[in-house]
Amino acid sequence: MSFKKVLIDNKSLIALLLLMGAVSLYSPNFLTVDNLLNVLRQTSINAIIALGITYVILTAGIDLSVGSVLALSGAVCASLLAADTPLIVAFMATLFVGGMLGAANGVVISFFGVQPFIATLVGMTMLRGATLVFTDGRPISTGDFEVAEAFYQLGGGYVAGIPVPILLAAAVFGVGWLVLNRTAFGRYVYAIGGNEQVTLIAGINVRRVKIVVYMLSGAMAALAGMILTARLESAQPTAGLGYELDAIAAVVLGGTSLMGGRGTLIGTLIGALIIGVLNNALNLMDVSSYYQQIAKGGVILLAVVVDSRVKSR
């Protein structure tokens, strides 16, 4: 009975371990330190975006604009660096831009009552357009100044043998977990998704909480955008296309309810890892990138169906 409950409560983790076991049987290269670090590094961008989206989904919202926010923030960052802006200034300014773009979504949603799906769909379209205008449709190089060299470390550097993106992801997950589970704000996030009207009647500033949540989602997208830009040493106008879907998939695979009010960040991390391992495995198995998308979609569908079967029992 309790063993069964442990199984059900940790089903995402079990799915991840089963997947890893299966892949390691098929491909001996999988369980090497180099490859695992590689998987983690590739997963970190999606995980960071998914962290922000977890907050949003917990309030029963959705954020489709993260891919576009990522691209625009990356472009802003690259052009700042190309103008020899000090690293910390460029970094903070980019986070600020991402946060404000997200906050704009939040304002549209909580003050004008637009459905989150529509508001952020509009955000996705408009910000992609803004990115194309800003970049004139061409990549922006981070430039030849020393600051660009330092910035590269954000995406391509190592500390104590561990890629920097992994450390960044670990740090934001640590802080993100603390905020969600050990602060009043975190409680409000869950409460709004659980029942917005009850939360309002309890005297909580629901609008402010929502705006902050979307702001956080935007800032996380901006951080992911900087990691990507750093690694490529340039900002691509089409960067982040479709990233929102991978992030939402990670959140859902992690067991967070799209209805809001229920879910965990640990789950999201596991969900992101499942997607990361899957991508890696399909590469190791030399599956053509055309088939990869079909395979990935199939696995996500399977996971969600199994999940709802377990829940309804």
Binding site: N195, I204, G261
Partner: peptide, 21 residues
């Protein structure tokens, strides 16, 4: 159901919803 308690949440987090600060 509509204004009083978040049905899917626990006794504890409901009881301290407005006063968690």
């Amino acid at each position: 159901k509509g204004e009083g308690l978040i049905q899917i949440h626990s006794l504890k987090s409901n009881m301290t919803l407005g006063t968690v600060r």
